[in-house]
């Protein structure tokens, strides 16, 4: 009986049981609060997206998607040329930003750290660069617009054009691409690098045969995120792309993206239904892009992990 003491204390101590009840109740209350918060977020999201899609859905049909906007104050016509311009702009912006961003991230993670260890000057340069990238990521996009206007549109005389807009857009998405690529490179285990170097591979071979393939899912996620950013951006392109409703025929032509078109429709015309329709197309595009990020990164990660 004496030996049973610890067990009997555990089973019979009524304060202990009471305590347990209180602790369980506290837990239930907090879980309920968090459940409500989660549910509320979901409802708000569905309301916004649902409203835009339902309202916009009324004007969306094949004709809306395939006819160009008539322009002017009427708001007549569809959105075909703005879809085209959006695609052009995304392509051109990525063409500029992706190699620069990935290159910068590789340098910062794979090479600069090493040089920073031996040279104090390099250490300062690297920390300034990192700080600059972080700051750029937090700057309001209209600042990139102003900069793009001042430099590309006006000083370099590219005018309101795909070229000016994609250069300004590249400045906007560079921090995203650099950051996501850096994070992707940091998740690649050093064991891979050491394993490769120990086999007599050069640093460059190690990078492009082992490290980059392993980091690819993260890098692609960054690029797709940038696509979403370019599609939904208005401020930068408002001042660099102009507002022509025609499809650009060269990179020196201006145009309007979906988001810009939405802005013009809502502000300059009475065609609010068309604005909603354009908005719905935008929202669906963004949803598709986010879904594709999930699919791509799951698939690629499984491939990398050898699933």
């Amino acid at each position: 009986m004496i030996n049973d003491k610890p067990i009997s204390r555990f089973q019979n101590d009524s304060t202990m049981m009471k305590n347990l009840k209180v602790r369980n109740t506290t837990q239930s209350i907090w879980f309920s609060i968090m459940w409500i918060a989660g549910f509320a977020t979901l409802v708000v999201l569905l309301l916004v997206v649902g409203y835009v899609i339902v309202q916009g859905g009324k004007v969306i049909n094949w004709e809306f998607l395939t006819t160009p906007p008539r322009g002017g104050l009427s708001g007549d016509g569809g959105i075909s040329t703005t879809l085209g311009t959006t695609v052009y702009l995304v392509g051109l912006t990525l063409l500029i930003a992706t190699p620069l961003g990935i290159g910068a991230a590789i340098y910062l993670i794979e090479y600069a750290g090493e040089q920073g260890l031996t040279s104090p000057v390099m250490r300062v340069v690297i920390s300034i660069t990192n700080f600059a990238v972080e700051t750029l990521a937090g700057i309001p996009s209209i600042i990139f617009g102003l900069f793009g206007y001042a430099l590309f549109v006006s000083t370099l005389q590219f005018g309101w054009s795909l070229l000016s807009a994609s250069l300004a857009g590249a400045c906007l998405v560079l921090p995203t691409i650099i950051r996501t690529t850096e994070e992707a490179l940091l998740t690649v285990p050093d064991d891979y690098r050491r394993g490769s170097l120990a086999l007599g591979a050069t640093k460059w071979q190690t990078l492009h045969k082992v490290v980059l393939p392993a980091a690819l899912p993260g890098i692609i996620t960054g690029i797709v995120l940038s696509v979403g950013r370019i599609i939904s951006e208005t401020a930068v392109f408002f001042v660099t792309l102009g507002g022509s409703h025609r499809l650009p025929t060269s990179i020196m032509n201006g145009g309007r993206t979906l988001a810009l078109h939405l802005y013009y429709l809502a502000m300059d015309t009475n065609a609010f239904d068309k604005a909603m329709g354009t908005g719905a197309v935008l929202v669906v595009l963004i949803i598709l892009i986010n879904l594709s990020i999930n699919v791509i990164s799951t698939k690629l990660t499984a491939k990398v992990r050898g699933g």
Binding site: D191, G195, V210, P213
Partner: peptide, 9 residues
Amino acid sequence: FQKPNPFPK
């Protein structure tokens, strides 16, 4: 190495 480190290949 101490920890097996095959490449993800």
